[in-house]
Design a protein around this nucleic acid. Structure first.
Lengths: 257, 257
DNA sequence: GCAATAATGTTAATTTCGTAACATTCTAAC
DNA sequence: GTTAGAATGTTACGAAATTAACATTATTGC
């Protein structure tokens, strides 16, 4: 009995494409009676994938939003307002026709959101949420480093991605990190992130670190680079004063959002 | 005359929250007649923010997501039902723990939709809409070929992507095309597509062409490969009979959806 | 305050939809 | 092939929803 199965997935795909499907249209297009379609939609409704309405059904998007696999979601909501401000501040560093690299993570995503729609630029990136945001800005050209997809970080990573970064050059890099420590340097939580991040650091001129104030004094598992390898740090005003002094002593430019 | 304005924004908020709103529920909750609600929803529908359905309206999310830049959208709706059927048929070719490559295009997207959520497999792909669909299936491992993003085709393409495909191997390739002609072979409309497609063909064992019947006899600008390089063709039942004979004579397996 | 006009409400005829009961066809096991 | 059981189709009737025309009620400018 594969017939009903086939109909169900066809109906589901149509519902997904059109949002609304009607008994009549479905029965016409699939050559079965409205009663059959009705029973099919009942089945789909009991599985909670569509919602019945008078005359048909609508696709229930509430249930499938397994979309971005928000393990990151929890992390994302922490310091979200600071990250938005940091993104906006960092976006002011952009010049027309810049080519820059953009790292992964929630702060990078906030930065992507803050890029004005009419900014002509070329962006080299490797995080899916960042890409999804950037394709809404038609004046941005996108170069994407591929590789294996990591759902927890919503990023691509692998030798070919690293080689793409090595073969690219950018005037700026907008880097993110999970920890910033005076002696232990800049760190990130997931070891597979370091390959892409390091390649990006080596291929770009001005290294700009986007980091919210909660990360100062924190140390994560994977060592990324030392502090003097960054040129500009954009953070929020809750940064502890002694870190502020420390950064300025190092000759690094500090921007507070 | 702010009353109608007020109602409209209230209705809109409710529509956004609940997806579906009904004339009856709205007229009850706002203390006006269903006729007024009907006229309100007509207004909102003419502004394209809701879509009228029998008994009420649904919020039209299509207009606010600038998300996928559907230039492809127009093409996508052509033969959409056939493509869905083709996708479902092709998905039946999958075995557990397969590693396969998946091309770009609307038919490839329909195929991605048809992959059962619990299929353990590794998928090598390079189209953004395909990726967005596949990340909703947690049991699929994704490898993504990167490169420059092309909004018209929603795909990535470039030397590093090609090199990733060359360094990969897959038991199957699900290929798409824009034209299929007896003597002029298999063609596609955008020249930058051929690099990725050819690399995929060379790195995979069984070549499966997903193509709707409207493409038979059509020739597009970029030559991709000759017909005998594919092993299986999945199309819909509207395929002209002489093409059906031609394919079978060539010893290619033909599946009709 | 008084038209004039727009907004809203009411009603009834028409159409469409939903439901249930039953008829038919398909399918698979024996 | 027969037959039980499932899937699908048909029909008819009651319950909405749609439409249009008209009635009523606000609003606005004068």
């Amino acid at each position: 009995m594969g017939k009903k199965e086939d109909r169900l997935s066809q109906i589901l795909a149509l519902a997904q494409a059109n949002t609304v499907v009607t008994y009549k249209a479905l029965s016409d297009s699939m050559g079965v009676s409205t009663m059959t379609i009705r029973r099919d939609l009942d089945t789909l409704a009991s599985q909670n994938v569509v919602k019945l309405i008078r005359g048909g059904a609508i696709y229930n998007q509430a249930q499938d939003t397994g979309a971005p696999s928000y393990i990151l979601q929890t992390q994302e909501e922490v310091y979200i307002e600071e990250k938005i401000r940091i993104g906006i501040k960092a976006a002011s560093l952009l010049n027309p026709n810049d080519t820059f690299m953009l790292d992964s993570g929630s702060t990078a995503f906030c930065f992507a959101q803050a890029i004005p729609k009419d900014t002509n630029c070329t962006i080299i990136c490797w995080a899916l949420n960042v890409i999804q945001e950037l394709i809404t800005k038609p004046s941005c050209k996108l170069i994407v480093g591929g590789g294996a997809y990591h759902p927890e970080a919503q990023m691509f990573e692998g030798p070919e991605g690293i080689s793409l970064l090595r073969n690219s050059r950018a005037s700026k890099l907008f880097l993110t990190a999970g920890g910033f420590h005076e002696t232990l340097g800049i760190t990130c939580p997931l070891s597979y992130e370091t390959g892409m991040k390091r390649a990006a650091i080596e291929s770009s001129l001005t290294k700009i670190l986007l980091i919210d104030s909660s990360k100062f004094g924190r140390v994560c598992q994977s060592y990324l680079t030392n502090i003097s390898s960054v040129d500009i740090i954009v953070t929020d005003s809750k940064i502890p004063p002694h870190y502020q002094d420390f950064i300025l002593e190092k000759g690094i430019k500090l921007l507070l959002a």
